[in-house]
Amino acid sequence: MSDSTDTAGSKAAAALRRYWRANIRIMAVLLGLWAVAGLGAGILFADTLNAYRISGTGFPLGFWFAHQGSIIVFVLLILAYCLYMNRLDNRHRRELETIRQEG
């Protein structure tokens, strides 16, 4: 009896570790994009990007990223995180449910 609760407990702990690793992974990807869009395109490479213009508009690319583009990217990044984490939460809950039933 105590054996089965132990394995159920360690399975749950393993599931939690997987959940946390997946969370860290998506965070790293999104924060990478955050840095590229905001600090990269908007600042570090803004002078280079300013040589190009968004076709059909008067926006030099670097200026556009600093004034509008980065903000749009930021909103989309948070949206992506919310949607992904909702799925991850649900998956984790289902996993725990199965472990509980098996245990």
């Binding site: 965070m27 999104l30 924060l31 955050w34 905001g38 908007g42 600042i43 803004a46 670097g62 200026f63 600093a66 004034h67 509008q68 980065s70 903000i71 930021f74 990044l77 948070i78 995180y81 919310c82 984490m85």
Partner: peptide
């Protein structure tokens, strides 16, 4: 401020919005 600073006014635009990504991913939940 943006009107007189031009491109550099973007520090306020990016700075005051970019923090929300850090908030949402690293702190709020």
């Amino acid at each position: 401020l943006i009107s007189t600073m031009g491109y550099a006014g973007g520090v306020y635009l990016m700075g005051w919005t970019g923090g929300y990504v850090l908030l949402a991913l690293l702190l709020a939940p």
